[in-house]
């Protein structure tokens, strides 16, 4: 089983649009959305949820006000600024370390199991789809990404699918690193802007750091051809293959509004996306 992940560094470069395009071309595939705090792929895939499991994040500290003697020791040891001057515990700042529980002389603080979201196993017109939703204000998105990937891997094994296609999140931190673990190919989607190039450099350094093979897709390449050349030169220098380029077309937004993938909508960018997809299959040898 091979895993392909779509990432970008910079947000809004077209990860999900391209992932949905690939999804409608892929055969024998399990799809998964690793962007758990602002997930969008389900909007196009319109999943039918078959199974729903709760996700537990790190526990949070809960105080019994009747037992609290307001000594302030909890506030002294908390390194996450989760306890205010009146010794109230802010749940969203608590990282669940339980140092306050240990230090409290009045036994007033307990750790509470924290249901922080849900993981869904669904069916879509393109194949099985694993996705998740982090509850509002919850942390531990990296942990949830790992759970989503585990479920996707299990589903692929069970249904004998050869490929797992993962849509990632922007940035280079916790959820992105969690999504990168063990993938066979990272497709970095960028755009020809100063931010696009700058963020590409950072995410490409991250894939290199973790030894993950990467290729680059330049989306909306014709909005600034000079910057596109700079991106190509950068990829050349770093020996990162440019998988393909997609031109800017208003019909990509139209497809999103119609809640269809660009391929289904018949967008003028379809051919470019099809070409990239066959190149991906060649690279990962599926």
């Amino acid at each position: 089983m091979k895993q392909v992940l779509i990432i970008s560094g910079k947000g809004g470069t077209g990860k999900t649009t391209i992932a949905a395009g690939f999804a409608s071309l892929a055969e024998n595939v399990v799809l998964a959305d690793c962007d758990v705090d602002a997930p969008d792929l389900h909007i196009i895939l319109k999943p039918e949820i078959k199974e729903e499991t709760p996700f537990y994040a790190l526990s949070v500290a809960v105080k019994d006000d009747e037992k609290c003697i307001k000594c302030g020791k909890c506030r002294e040891v908390c390194r996450f600024n989760a306890i205010d001057e009146y010794f109230n515990i802010a749940e969203y700042a608590c990282e669940g370390c339980a140092a306050c529980v240990f230090i409290c002389p009045a036994d007033a603080i307990d750790m509470r199991k924290n249901a922080a979201g849900k993981i869904y196993v669904s069916e879509t017109r393109f194949g099985p789809f694993i996705h998740a939703k982090l509850d509002i204000g919850q942390e531990a998105s990296g942990k949830l990404v790992i759970e989503v990937k585990k479920k996707a891997g299990k589903k692929a094994e069970k249904e004998n699918k050869k490929l797992v296609l993962l849509d990632g999140s922007p940035g280079i931190g916790c959820p992105v690193i969690a999504s990168l673990a063990g993938v066979d190919l990272a497709v970095i989607v960028t755009e020809p802007t100063v931010s696009g190039l700058h963020d590409l450099e950072r995410i490409a350094n991250v894939t290199k750091h973790f030894n993950i093979p990467a290729v680059v897709c330049i989306n909306k390449y014709d909005i600034n051809k000079k910057k596109t050349r700079e991106i190509e030169e950068f990829c050349n220098r770093k020996k990162i293959p440019v998988l393909g380029k997609i031109h800017y077309n208003q019909d990509v937004t139209e497809a999103m509004i119609a809640l269809e993938s660009v391929i289904e909508y018949g967008s003028a960018t379809s051919e470019e996306i099809k070409k990239m997809w066959s190149k991906i299959l060649e690279i990962i040898k599926v």
């Binding site: 602002a38 969008d40 700042a93 999103m256």
Partner: peptide, 25 residues
């Protein structure tokens, strides 16, 4: 971007938050 830990850390305690969006699904 997003709504997870880094965003919570940044927004908490601010006087006002401007939410920038684009008119798409």
């Amino acid at each position: 971007p997003g709504t997870a830990c880094p965003v919570i850390e940044a927004i908490t305690g601010c006087d006002y938050c401007m939410l920038v969006t684009e008119p798409t699904p």
